[in-house]
Simulated scan of single mutants.
Amino acid sequence: MNSFVVPAASYEAQNAYRRLQLTMEKDDPRMAILEIRTFLKMYPDLALACNDLGVLYAQTGEKLLALACYEKANRLQPATPVIVKNLAEFYFVELGWTDDAILMLTELLKSHPDDTDLLALLGTISGKIGREQEARTFFRRVLELEPGNRDASVALRQLEGAIPAAEFSAQPVRPAAPPVPPPVQAAPVQPVAPPAATAAPAGSPLDDILARLRSTIATAEAVVRPASPAQPTAGMSAEQRYREAQTAVANGDADRAVTLLEQLVAETPVSPLAHNDLGILYTNAGRLDLAVNHHELAVRQAPDNPLFAKNLAALYYSLCGRTDEAIAIYTRLVKEYPTDVEVLTALAIISNNNNLKEQARVFISRVLDFEPWNADARQFLAEL
């Protein structure tokens, strides 16, 4: 939290904000959230209250709500150090938007060159992305301004050489900023045409993205072959069964495809692609219990496959009402694949459907950064 008070429009607002800060010092963040939300109904434009609400939401794991509050605070009171630092750190830690975070922080540094928290955060980010020279520069500057800064001293020594394991063991060290893993860039999986079109759910013009996610089969090996008569399945290899299943899908024979794939996973349980396809076929048939089971198995067996994860998240959100689990998957994916337009679009849709307009704008604007020609995204943004 912070103790910085922005002058409000009235004496009552200032007093209310002071009481709000006292509430935030308590050990019950959920009670503090209720107090701040009540406060913001009366004084909706107090930026630091929005920022503090974002901090509390982040502490309780409500990441999308935290982002909405940070974005609103930054819009209401731009260039405020504590607000910019919180938003930039969220971009880097939760979303993997490294360039955006660095751009925001370095711009802020121009007007606040002696802000040691800002310098330490830039040092931490630089170190995590492999820019060790820059990290050393930032931490050295912190120590010039605060020679006794223990966190910066430890961070600098870690960059310049290993610290003995026993050193500083008597007192735990709080890092200058939370440790963050580097964003993972993975080669995108090329999708193959879906076996059958799924009607887009009613709502925003981009809701069909979620439907397409549900019906996407991802494989570079599956080839749709010309129609052929049904063949006996005895003695088939796993590869032959899968190809036959694809042929059955192309011929509109979903029942045969399901039979072949069920035989395949019975004989070869670790078959994430087959489980994913079964999830899609069972979704199209309305068998949601089986669909969820097979999509979960696909993700469990191939956790690094983004399309399997997207299919499961879309199913959770669109048909199962398991919004929190869908959001958890999408936020993990957007951190690992920050340029994935489908993930960004799904997060924009979920945010909008939950009346979180601020972060819906963030995500759909991000889509337009990567696809400026995307007419649906432009219409979505205009409607927001």
Rank of each mutant, 00 (worst) to 15 (best):
E12D: 02
E12A: 12
N15Q: 13
R18F: 12
R19Y: 12
R19N: 11
L22F: 12
T23Q: 08
E25S: 05
K26I: 06
D27I: 03
D28S: 10
D28H: 09
P29T: 05
R30W: 06
R30A: 11
R30K: 12
M31P: 05
A32Y: 12
L34V: 02
E35D: 14
E35N: 13
I36P: 00
I36W: 08
I36N: 01
F39G: 00
L40V: 12
K41I: 15
K41Y: 10
K41M: 15
K41R: 15
K41E: 14
M42L: 09
Y43T: 00
P44C: 10
D45A: 13
L46E: 06
A49P: 00
C50I: 03
N51E: 00
D52E: 11
D52I: 05
V55T: 11
L56K: 09
A58Y: 12
Q59V: 12
T60H: 02
G61D: 04
G61C: 04
G61I: 02
G61F: 08
E62I: 01
E62F: 07
E62G: 03
E62N: 06
K63Y: 15
K63W: 15
K63A: 09
L64G: 13
L67A: 07
L67M: 10
A68H: 07
A68L: 05
A68S: 14
K72E: 15
L76C: 11
Q77Y: 07
Q77G: 04
Q77I: 01
P78M: 06
A79E: 04
V82W: 02
I83A: 08
V84N: 03
K85V: 06
K85M: 13
N86S: 06
N86L: 05
N86F: 05
L87C: 08
A88C: 11
A88T: 07
V93Q: 10
E94C: 09
E94Q: 14
E94G: 07
G96H: 14
G96F: 14
W97E: 11
W97F: 08
T98Q: 10
T98M: 03
D99F: 11
D99C: 01
A101Q: 08
I102T: 06
L103D: 15
L103K: 01
L105C: 06
L105R: 05
E107S: 11
K110T: 06
K110C: 03
K110H: 10
S111G: 05
S111F: 05
S111P: 00
P113S: 03
D114T: 02
D115S: 09
T116I: 05
D117R: 15
D117K: 15
L118Y: 02
L119T: 08
A120D: 01
A120M: 07
